[in-house]
Amino acid sequence: MEQAFEQIFQDKIDREVRIEPKDWMPEKYRQTLIRQISQHAHSEIIGMLPEGNWITRAPSLRRKAILLAKVQDEAGHGLYLYSAAETLGISRDQMYDQLHTGKAKYSSIFNYPTLSWADMGVVGWLVDGAAIMNQVPLCRSSFGPYARAMVRVCKEESFHQRQGFEILYVLSKGTEAQRRMAQDAINRWWWPSLMMFGPKDDESPNSIQSMKWKIKRFSNDELRQKFVDVCAEQVKVLGFTLPDKDLKWNEERGHYDFGPINWDEFWQVVQGNGPCNKERLDARKKAWEEGAWVRDAALAYANKKAKQKQAAA
């Protein structure tokens, strides 16, 4: 019986028919999606923190308004994704709990500090750029609610990357000190951005099932290469360099070659030892705990109003 369902399910996937929440699905598919979507949502929420750091210190009213809008978008993206995950039978509070207890992870890129204003430019250009590279194929993910959420996210994400590049472009036309600041930010964020695509393909051998389920459609290395190729060209417009002495156009492959990634650093950050892991999680927990009275009060008020209405009727 299970096997027959399994077959029908796979047939649908193969025919590019989207899976909806109430459809039968293998338990492992459900769990993989819950993990991936909730971690994605957490990344959007935690991702507000490094940028929130600069809202009060943005160099102009224009930049401040833009940054506020961008951070608000990230909150929205988190909410779209939490909703998508909830359709799979996990509650919002359960997901928050997994985040706050460290059980669920989020993209490790957000465990790096944002030290200068130029970081706002680089986060938009590289971090959001890498995110878009990953997210565009997710718009065709086999799970309907996830794919629909990603369509919304991708529509909005494009402004994020462009405003980031614009910040860097303005700095590149600025003073020597501004150019130095921008180059320094690029140097610090380049490698962590490449790590955003996840471990190398050959270190994650059992990929067949997940590809077969069309939860994701391109491998980590494919997307990473695409990102390197794009950025290696874009950085020329800025007149800056990427901090990789091995970065070189390879005529034969039709791609840029690039140097080895420090995977030790990646796993250290994933496992909680990055520069800001504790700070980020503490900030989230604080917001959650200190917001408890607001949530309780709103619920109490709603219940009181409902009772009054009932009594009046």
């Binding site: 993990r35 669920a104 993209s107 996840g198 994701k216 994933v270």
Partner: peptide, 17 residues
Amino acid sequence: INKLYYGDYGESKNGAA
């Protein structure tokens, strides 16, 4: 499923599923 994807660091280490 041991494949690790963007925003997904595997469940053996940090699973949230």
